[in-house]
Write a protein that binds this DNA or RNA. Structure first.
Lengths: 185, 185
DNA sequence: TTACAGTGTTCATTTTATTTAACATACTTG
DNA sequence: CAAGTATGTTAAATAAAATGAACACTGTAA
C-alpha cells in the first residue's frame, strides 16, 4: 500500500518549507544529525522524535503520513461566470457549480454574503462535511461554541453535524467558494 | 494541540479487535513486552516497530494517528491563510484545506498555477468527481477531447474518470479553489 | 587567495527502545 | 483442590536511535 519512505517524505516537506537540516533541527529541538539520519533512512525515528521534528515544520503526524499515501459525453463540464445557477435570495448569492451533474457527490458553490446576512440564530446541523475559502471580504463563522472571523485567504473544514452559523456583520460583501458533501443543493 | 496518547490508542484499538497483547504480538512479529510497554507509555516506539505492531491489527499509521486526533477532539476548524499546507512544488501551489481532518470525504484546495504550469501530456484519470472556480487569471482545461479556456468566475464540475489535464499557457498565474471527492490529499 | 559561514554526512558515546526470560495474577477444567 | 493456560507486568541484557563533535564540501565576501 503505502511506500512510507519516511526519509524522502521528511526531506520533501523540509525542502518545501525552505529549511536546512540544521535550521529545522533548531526549530524542532533535535540535532542536525538526527535529521540527516532520518532522511537517509539509516534509522527509524521514534514517534516522539518524529513528532518533535515535525513540530518544527510545523506538521502533524497524520498530515505527514497522509502525504506519503497520496504522492497522486454530453455532460456539461464548464460553467461560465454568468451561467451559474443562483439559488440565493436577493443580494444573498448561492451559485451552484455543476448544477445539472447527475447525482453529484458534492455541492461546490460560489457564495456571496451581503452586509447583514445571517443564517439565523437557529444553528444549522446536518450530516456531511463542509469546507470553504474566503475570496474577498470578511465574515463571522460560529461552529459549536467557537466564533471565528475569517478574511480573504482564510478557510475552514468541519463536520456539518456540529451546529454552525454564518454571518456578515461587516460593511462589505463577503465572497467565498465552498464545498460540501454530500450534495445539499 | 493533540494529546496523542499512543498507549491508550493502541490499547483501545487492540481491545476493539478482541486481541490480547500476546496474540497481537504474535501477529505483528514483536514481543508481548513491547506491546505492554507501549501501552503503558513507558516507551515511545520507533515508527518501524509501531508500524509492525499495527500490521497485526491491521491498521495504517495514518488511521492510527487519525484516531488519536479525533479522540482528543481538538479538531482544527479554521485555517488561516498562512497555515495552509502547501504540497505543491516550487511556484506551483497546492494548499490543502482541512489537512488533518481525519478521514476527510473531500480534498478542498487553493491551487495556483504559474505561467507554463502543466499536469502533462499524459492525461489524468481517477475515480471521483472534481470541481473548481477560477479566482484570478486564466487557464486551459482539457476534459476528454474538449479544450476550455476558463477565466475568473468560470468553473467546472466533471467526473474524474474522464481523462483531464490542466495547463496555464498564459503569462500570469492562475488561482483557483477546487474540491475533489474522495480525498486524494 | 584566504577566511568564513553555510550545507549535509559520519562516528564514538550516551540515551532509549526492544528482547529475553522471568514473575504474579486470574480463570479454566480435570 | 491442583495443573494447566491464559492474562499483563517487570528486570536485565541486547539492539537501536539520538547526541555531540568532528569531517568534507560548497559558495561568498574580504
Amino acid at each position: 500500500m503505502t511506500n512510507l519512505d519516511i526519509g524522502a517524505s521528511l526531506k520533501a516537506v523540509r525542502k518545501l518549507k525552505g529549511l536546512s537540516q540544521r535550521e529545522l533541527a533548531k526549530r524542532a529541538g533535535v540535532t542536525n544529525s538526527t535529521i540527516s539520519m532520518i532522511e537517509k533512512n539509516s534509522v527509524s525515528p521514534s514517534v516522539s522524535s518524529l513528532k518533535k521534528v515535525l513540530s518544527g515544520i510545523p506538521m502533524s503526524l497524520v498530515e505527514f503520513f497522509s502525504i506519503g499515501e497520496s504522492a497522486s459525453s454530453e455532460q456539461k463540464i464548464v460553467y461560465r461566470a454568468d451561467e451559474l445557477l443562483d439559488i440565493g435570495t436577493g443580494p444573498l448569492e448561492f451559485k451552484v457549480i455543476g448544477r445539472d451533474y447527475p447525482n453529484r457527490a458534492m455541492s461546490v458553490m460560489s457564495e456571496t454574503y451581503p452586509p447583514g446576512a445571517d443564517t439565523g440564530e437557529e444553528m444549522l446541523k446536518h450530516v456531511g462535511e463542509e469546507a470553504a475559502m474566503v475570496i474577498t471580504g470578511k465574515f463571522e463563522l460560529t461552529v459549536g461554541d467557537e466564533i471565528f472571523i475569517l478574511e480573504a485567504g482564510d478557510s475552514y473544514y468541519f463536520n456539518s453535524e456540529l451546529p454552525h452559523r454564518f454571518r456578515n456583520p461587516f460593511d462589505e460583501p463577503c465572497h467565498l467558494v465552498s464545498a460540501t458533501t454530500p450534495a445539499n443543493f
